[in-house]
Amino acid sequence: MYKLLIADDEYEFRNGLTRFFPWNQVGFEAVKQAENGKEVLEIVHTNEIDVILCDIKMPIMSGIDVARELRNSHIKIVFLSGYREFEYAQQALTFGVKNYILKPPKFHEMENVFKGLKEELDQKKDLKASRLASEKAEDPVFETLITKIKRYIEQNYRDATLEGTAKFVHLNQHYLSKYFKQKTSENFSDYVIRVKMEKAKELLADPNCKTYEISEIVGYSNAKNFTRTFRKYTGKSPREYRNRE
Rank of each mutant, 00 (worst) to 15 (best):
D139E: 10
H170M: 05
E154W: 01
A160E: 02
A166D: 08
T147S: 04
E143A: 10
E109D: 09
A129S: 11
I149N: 00
E163Q: 14
A166N: 10
Q123S: 14
D126T: 13
E120D: 12
R151C: 03
F168S: 10
M110V: 07
E119S: 15
L145P: 00
L162S: 12
T144D: 03
E120C: 05
T144S: 03
L171P: 01
Y157Q: 04
T147Q: 04
T147E: 04
K115I: 12
N172L: 02
R131N: 14
V113F: 02
Q173P: 13
K148W: 00
F142R: 05
E138N: 08
A166Y: 11
M110P: 03
F142K: 07
A166G: 10
L121Y: 14
L102Y: 08
P105M: 09
G164R: 10
K103D: 02
K136C: 11
H108P: 00
H170L: 06
K103C: 02
F168T: 08
P105Y: 02
Q123D: 13
P105E: 03
L102K: 05
Q173M: 03
A133T: 12
T161P: 13
Y152G: 00
K128A: 09
H170Q: 06
E135F: 07
E109I: 14
Y152W: 03
I146K: 00
L132F: 04
V169F: 02
P105D: 04
E109T: 11
D139G: 04
K128P: 10
I149V: 08
L127D: 14
R158I: 08
K106W: 02
A133F: 14
R131T: 15
E120Q: 12
L102V: 07
E163K: 15
A160V: 09
A133R: 13
R158E: 13
F168C: 05
T161E: 10
H108E: 12
E143F: 09
K150N: 10
D139S: 06
G116S: 11
K148P: 00
P140Q: 03
N156P: 01
K148E: 04
N156C: 04
I149D: 00
A133L: 14
K167R: 15
E135P: 00
A129F: 09
